[in-house]
Simulated assay, not measured.
Amino acid sequence: MTKILLSIILIISTLHPVWAKDIEVTVYSDDSYAPYSYKKGRHAAGIYTEIMEIIFSRMKGYRVSIVPVPWKRGLKLLEEGKGFALYPPYKYPEKRPYIELYSNPIINEKVVLVCRHGSLEKTRVNWPEDYEGLTIGLNRGFSLGGKKFWEAVHNGTINVEETENNKMNLMKLLKGRIDCYLNDHFSIMWTLNNMRKNNEVPTRVSDVIRYSTFVSNQQGYLGITGRDQGKFPFKKDFLAQFNKILQELKNDGTIDTIINNFLEENDAELILPAHPCTARQ
């Protein structure tokens, strides 16, 4: 009798994965990083989001919801182990030790520095030492600029002002409240374009601001918390499936198509002369 019961238990345990419900997972997204990741109405939108939706729809055993949140709040959720994953952080393991796992790189981005003309009257070739004394705008929670930049900020030779989103930073830049603004170049152009459509910027933006020579290549990832204390035991399987499907989308051209279609459909024209290092080929 005991052997029969053990056999039944063994059979049931073997079949359980077939019967088990999908694991419900919440992934957080930046709500203010257009055109890559932003909030449209009550829902997540953007280039990364379209990629994520395809990947999540093909993953087996998971039902994934995407929830847009302010970037700094998303990082805090991972830091406290309350949130499972967030996109699209850059890979800063020293600054964000609470992110245990990163996906493979999803999109290549180019970070640029846009400055007021007066701030670039002096030759500024070397980053960050040539920018001492200036105030640089950043989106809240962003860690752009590199190690030497943040050392200069810590030492007080460069000032940083954080604001919630692209638009608020660009308004401050156009009004002369900050000297430069550091962010991805397509994201800056996207926001300026929308501001122009709403008559929120000068007719000729290039008369007020322009690119500096600074450019930095970055990549966006899906970041997974390491502070969950076993709350998310499935994270390695989740990430393995994610990376496999991500590579498939890269190989078949889906990601390139999403990027190109998204920018064209949303009229992401440039309203500043193209930075020589960021011009699309």
Rank of each mutant, 00 (worst) to 15 (best):
P89Y: 11
R210E: 15
N260T: 13
I8A: 08
S65K: 13
G83P: 10
A274P: 15
P273I: 05
P17L: 06
S13M: 14
N165L: 02
E200A: 10
N166M: 07
H117L: 15
Q241S: 12
R73F: 00
S103V: 07
Y92W: 12
A44I: 03
L192M: 14
S206G: 01
C277E: 13
I258W: 01
G137Y: 00
E129T: 15
A44V: 04
G46Y: 05
T2G: 14
K21Q: 14
E94M: 08
K21G: 13
A20F: 04
Y221F: 15
F142N: 08
F234Y: 15
I224N: 07
N104I: 01
V125C: 09
F186A: 03
F242E: 11
V201W: 03
K60V: 12
G41K: 03
K235G: 11
N243Q: 08
K21N: 11
N104Q: 15
L173T: 08
P273S: 04
R124D: 09
E50W: 09
E109Q: 04
Y36G: 04
L78K: 00
L246Y: 00
Y62L: 11
G118A: 11
Y98A: 05
N199H: 13
F242D: 09
G145P: 12
P273F: 05
K235I: 05
E164A: 14
I23L: 13
L138Q: 14
K172Q: 10
M168G: 09
E162W: 01
D207W: 06
G176V: 09
S13G: 02
E264T: 15
R280D: 10
R177F: 11
G133D: 02
H117K: 15
S57H: 03
N169A: 12
V160H: 13
C180K: 05
E80Y: 04
L272H: 05
E151L: 14
